[in-house]
Design a protein around this nucleic acid. Structure first.
Lengths: 220, 220, 220, 220
DNA sequence: AATGAATGAGAATTCATTCAT
DNA sequence: GATGAATGAATTCTCATTCAT
């Protein structure tokens, strides 16, 4: 039963690509680099993958899909906008810390996709960001946030959280939930939250990240 | 006085490189792309530039140099930590809005430098970030900021401001000083500033950005 | 009787190769193209065939063998050189019309064979062409043909008839025997035949083509 | 003055391509083969040529253009259909003998062109063949040719003449004008020409071929 | 009988760079 | 000051083929 063999190899390639695209960029990574990292000949790589761009597109789609799924799991049905934005921030931060390489690729390599491949990726991203937009909008309506230019605020908060992937390394002094809590506080304060005392359900966010990504990395 | 003739051409090359490195990345930009954008042959390029990496290193050094100079001009001698951090934020944001391409290169392409070339760049960056560190530290000591993990906060704020280069486009609804003011408010609130009512001297920041970059783009 | 099971598959491969070699050329056809056309994996192909060149050599040997056999059946014992040349032309034309792909491969891909493989193929072709040479020679001796440079004439007539495979498509306005008759007339006139009134036995030629190729496509 | 340098090199490449495409086919010829034959590195080849297909398309366009030009020069204003067809045959044969490689490429490699590139080539060829169609039609109307299915006859004669490139080698026993005269006789007889006694103006045909191709091989 | 996995060799093409003029 | 010519090394990707199962 060689059936489940293709899984591991394809995953090895995927992991190699994620790592190298994150560290050296799409254009900075050669097919030979990928093959070496995945312990295959470069010809064998093409047994599993159509081409370099397919690999990138697959990574981005899956990563954004996972993020979107996780966001819905964490936010759907939550009425309080403060809790909602707090959870989105925490989820985003935890994801960027735990899946540093995937999120780095997603955040940096959209431009490396061809127009046709880029489109669905951008659409996914837009769908995800809409959750942020709605949380902020509802908070403003409810009078718990205070900011003019809410869309600028949204962009600022998103970029702030994206940044985590650029410096966080696990095993530092800060554990994940502390990190997420810190960012949630920063974000809510920045949003003009009157009483950011309550902290979002960090454990929930972390658990969701774990299960969603466990699925993402198996279900291929 | 044919001496300063090389100036204009070299500037054209520099501008071409800044544009393309920002838009397509260092590895995504070919020498021929650069030559075409600068309207000369790729062979002629080598009259003005040692090689591709020199070009990148030059851009980064000058851009970071300008940022550091501007920061000192804006911050030195300012006692109030709130005003200091506010100005740093405003300056950083204005720079990322006005010099979008330069800052994009600085923020994304450090990894494309060789180890030796990278070192002085990183050092410059560290020197610059120390100004942020100090402002935050002083604000905490003075009791006007409230944040545990001040270095995490610093990183979060810096990344938030870096993000401006990823989405701002001049000619939008938001003018520069509004933008800078908005970000200053977000940042100070996030830092736990008790009374962020006072806004930093935005006009000063903007003026400094203008003069520093006018110099930077001529003095080559 | 599982013995003749390999027949069908091998035939499918053969047919695939004939089609693709004819349409895209030997070098323009990949092993994977062949496998796809034959509806099996490229690895399975190698169960039935030594390698790409074997496939080509087999096609050529069989096709030339069939042509030679048919020619003998049609010509042996026929004394009249006009009838003989007429039949050779008709047979050649019918074969090129009915077995367009096989003859295209034979006519175009000799150069793609390696030296050793090429030799027997060329020998077969020479043997076949000798029948034409003899018919023309006998017609000249008998005073029914008139042409100096008979070998140039032979080459001209052969190429004229080869051409049929380049444009004839079944189902056109012209049926096979009309086509063959037309070419026989052209050829005999060109050979300076004084009275080309009598037409060769086209039905015989056609029947022989049919039986010979029925055998050729089964007896593998 | 390095200006006229690019001429010779580009011509060397063209000649190499013509030779190799003729002898080994488009798909049988590698870029490295071409470079070696043209005494360049394969990278240098791309200094002069866009890609392999451009090279092929250029050869085909120029060769067909030359053939068409020559045909017009030889046939325009000639009223007698016998002389006209005779000249077309002679011209075609001489061209296939003298420019064996070019015509071989034209006759065999149309299929190797991509759809867009193929179109203009096919159009040129059609324009050229129309001259044959008209000569035959006029001869039939004038009652000097006798053939039903004139378009089949046209195809047969064209292929007969194409064949020359497959076997003729200069320096054989047969000189060019003898060859052309022989083919003209064969063709006119095949066309049912009642009195093929008169031979077309072979010297004229030959001269036109020479001048047209001298231009073709310089005017690049 | 059949195939997924694997690969070394080679395909076409692009790269950054040098140099003679 | 400027560039056409040139190239070795590298690029992405395909090739025909083998082999374990």
């Amino acid at each position: 039963m060689a059936l489940n063999r293709s899984g591991p190899t394809k995953d090895r390639i995927r992991r190699a690509a994620v790592k190298l695209f994150a560290d050296k960029g799409f254009h900075g990574t050669g097919i030979r680099d990928l093959a070496q990292e995945a312990r295959l000949s470069s010809a064998s790589l093409y047994h599993y993958v159509g081409n370099k761009e397919d690999l990138l597109a697959g990574i981005m789609r899956d990563a954004l899909g996972a993020l979107l799924t996780a966001a819905h799991e964490v936010v759907d049905g939550v009425a309080d906008p403060v809790e909602r934005l707090g959870r989105l921030v925490a989820l985003h931060v935890i994801t960027h810390a735990v899946q540093r390489e995937e999120t780095t690729v997603v955040d940096n390599e959209v431009r490396s996709l061809s127009a046709e491949t880029r489109q669905p990726v951008v659409k996914l991203r837009d769908t995800y960001e809409r959750l942020w937009t709605e949380a902020i909008r509802d908070g403003l309506r409810a009078g718990v946030f205070h900011t003019d230019r809410p869309s600028v605020t949204r962009l600022a908060l998103l970029e702030m959280c994206n940044g985590v992937a650029r410096w966080y390394s696990p095993g530092g002094a800060l554990d994940l939930e502390q990190l997420a809590g810190h960012y949630a506080r920063l974000a809510l304060r920045a949003a003009g939250c009157t009483d950011p005392g309550a902290v979002p359900d960090l454990a929930r966010c972390r658990a969701v990240v774990n299960t969603v990504w466990a699925t993402a990395e198996t279900g291929r």
